[in-house]
C-alpha cells in the first residue's frame, strides 16, 4: 500500500458497506413490524410431535392435522413440542417458527382471504418428517 493510492478499492468497500447498512436497516424495520403482535390476537396453542400437529383454540376445542381460522381476525400461535424439534410453517402466509421442547415460541398472522393452505414441518424430525403436514382452512366468520 506504500506510496500507491488504492482509491478504487476504497470506494468499492465504501459502497459495499453502504449497501450492507441499507440491508440491515430495511431488515430491522421489517422485522420490527412483523414481530409486533396485535393486542386483540386470539391465541392458538400448537403442539408439534412426531409426526403431527395438534391445535388448541382459546375456547378449548382441539384439532389434529387441521386448523380452522376465520377471515379478518388476528391469531397468535404459541408453539410447543413434546418430543424433538419441529418447525411450524404455513408457507403461504410466511408463518414460521421452530417448536422446541421446553420452550414456547410465538408467531402471529391475520388471514385475509377464504382458502386452504398447507401446513408443514420444516425442521428435520425423523422418519416421517417429510409427511408431517396439515391443512389450514380459512373460513368466513360464523358469528
Amino acid at each position: 500500500m506504500s506510496g500507491h493510492s488504492n482509491w478504487p478499492e476504497w470506494i468499492y468497500v465504501a459502497v459495499v458497506i453502504a449497501l450492507m447498512a441499507w440491508v440491515g436497516a430495511e431488515a430491522w424495520e421489517a422485522e420490527r413490524l412483523v414481530e409486533h403482535v396485535p393486542a386483540d390476537a386470539k391465541t392458538i396453542i400448537v403442539t408439534g410431535q412426531q409426526w403431527f400437529w395438534t391445535f388448541e383454540h382459546e375456547d378449548g376445542t382441539k384439532e389434529i392435522g387441521e386448523l380452522h381460522v376465520e377471515v379478518g381476525k388476528a391469531y397468535k400461535f404459541e408453539i410447543v413440542s413434546t418430543d424433538v424439534n419441529h418447525s411450524f410453517n404455513i408457507h403461504d402466509y410466511v408463518v414460521l417458527i421452530d417448536a422446541i421442547p421446553g420452550r414456547v415460541n410465538t408467531v402471529w398472522f391475520a388471514p385475509d382471504k377464504v382458502g386452504e393452505h398447507d401446513i408443514q414441518c420444516r425442521e428435520y424430525c425423523g422418519l416421517i418428517h417429510y409427511n408431517m403436514r396439515g391443512t389450514l382452512y380459512v373460513t368466513e366468520p360464523l358469528s
Partner: peptide, 16 residues
Amino acid sequence: GVVNSAMPLDFTTHDT
C-alpha cells in the same frame, strides 16, 4: 447469504 441474513426473510427461506 446477505439475503439470508436479513431477519424477516428467514420466514420464507429458513430450512427450505
